[in-house]
């Protein structure tokens, strides 16, 4: 098992190196930064000095290495637009996005699995068929449209929930949270539904089809032939087997929730990293964009690593170093 984890960590590191290369390459594609930093009144001497000072006269590989060295230490340079260290800006914004993503992810996973199991067990029931039809909407409507519809209904028409922002937040030092105030919690409802709806319907439909497949297996027939109660057959025997493939997709989707938060954050003016990224694109704020790219990929890779390790706890057949045979 240890060898497997080490191998997966090594693969993850490789992925991050490649993403780092892309992030680094962005700096070079948008022209010479020296041009931006020095005004019209410059001499060839100034340019040469600054270039040397910033290390831009070094070979590509050396520059890339220094970029990585800084990135690992959390140093992504200074935002062109705000003039503050990028890492500080990101850390300020991250709690908003992470809280939103966490609530959306939990909603998507809990409701997705519960509804998936329900629609699989009551395959022919009326309720299950209604849920399946409605879920098509969740899969096919674009996120921003769902957000706008929710705002129209609950904020504009009914006036129950705020249409933008995080509400009041409590500052816990390094972390600001909206969980501790009523307005903060209320502000979370619409964005988290908007963000999680697609993932929820996706997980639900996947759980349903996997579960139907598992329910056809011989060991389910055998479990029934042993007279086990339906509850045991469905939840102990079927659900666990269903989760093996589902968990991979859940891992990817949780990553996607963080990445797609950009759209939801724009619709709801949610002060998270996604909105920061959109603004950074508008102002060609490369350090912010590069740092965002790295942050998202670290999360994606991290979640996938966790998923791969989770397999071990669910599927004993993967624990290969256990003694087999008979």
């Amino acid at each position: 098992m240890l060898a497997y984890i080490i191998r997966r960590v090594a693969q993850s590191a490789l992925v991050l190196l490649i993403v780092g290369l892309v992030a680094f390459a962005m700096f070079r594609f948008v022209g010479d930064p020296i041009d931006n930093m020095l005004g019209q009144e410059r001499t060839a001497d100034d340019i040469e000095r600054l270039r040397e000072q910033l290390g831009l006269d070094q070979p590509f590989v050396v520059q890339y290495y220094r970029f990585l060295e800084n990135a690992v230490q959390g140093n992504f340079g200074v935002s062109y637009r705000q003039g503050r260290p990028v890492i500080d800006i990101l850390m300020e914004r991250a709690p908003a996005t992470l809280e939103l993503a966490a609530v959306s992810g939990i909603l998507a996973v809990l409701f997705g699995i519960a509804l998936g199991v329900f629609t699989a067990i009551r395959r022919k029931g009326i309720a299950a068929n209604i849920i399946m039809s409605v879920s098509l909407i969740g899969v096919s409507l674009p996120t921003f449209l769902i957000g706008i519809l929710l705002i129209y209904l609950f904020s504009v028409e009914l006036g129950w929930l705020p249409s933008f922002g995080r509400g009041e937040v409590v500052d816990l030092g390094a972390w600001t949270t909206g969980f501790l105030t009523a307005s903060g919690l209320k502000a979370l409802i619409l964005p988290s539904i908007t963000l999680g709806l697609y993932q929820m319907t996706l997980i639900m439909r996947l759980v349903r089809s996997e579960m139907l497949e598992v329910l056809r297996q011989d060991y389910i027939r055998f479990a029934r032939a042993r007279g086990l109660r339906n509850r045991a057959v469905h939840f102990r025997h079927a659900l666990k087997n269903t989760m093996v493939p589902v968990i991979t997709v859940i891992g990817l989707q949780v990553g996607a929730i963080i990445a797609f938060a950009i759209i939801t954050e724009t619709v709801f003016q949610w002060p998270g990293v996604g909105l920061l990224f959109i603004n950074a694109i508008q102002f060609v704020d490369i350090p912010v964009m590069a740092a965002y790219l790295m942050l998202i990929s670290v999360m994606f890779v991290g979640i996938n690593l966790i998923v791969d390790i989770l397999y071990f706890f669910i599927d004993p057949r993967l624990r290969v170093d256990r003694k087999g045979g008979h």
């Binding site: 297996q217 029934r224 032939a225 042993r226 007279g227 102990r236 599927d315 004993p316």
Partner: peptide, 24 residues
């Protein structure tokens, strides 16, 4: 009927490779 299955009537299936739940 469920109460009788396993209690009064036992069943052995054809393929032992697929009749046991692999995760338990």
């Amino acid at each position: 009927m469920r109460r009788l299955r396993g209690k009064e009537i036992g069943m052995v299936f054809q393929d032992p490779l697929t009749s046991l739940n692999p995760l338990l």
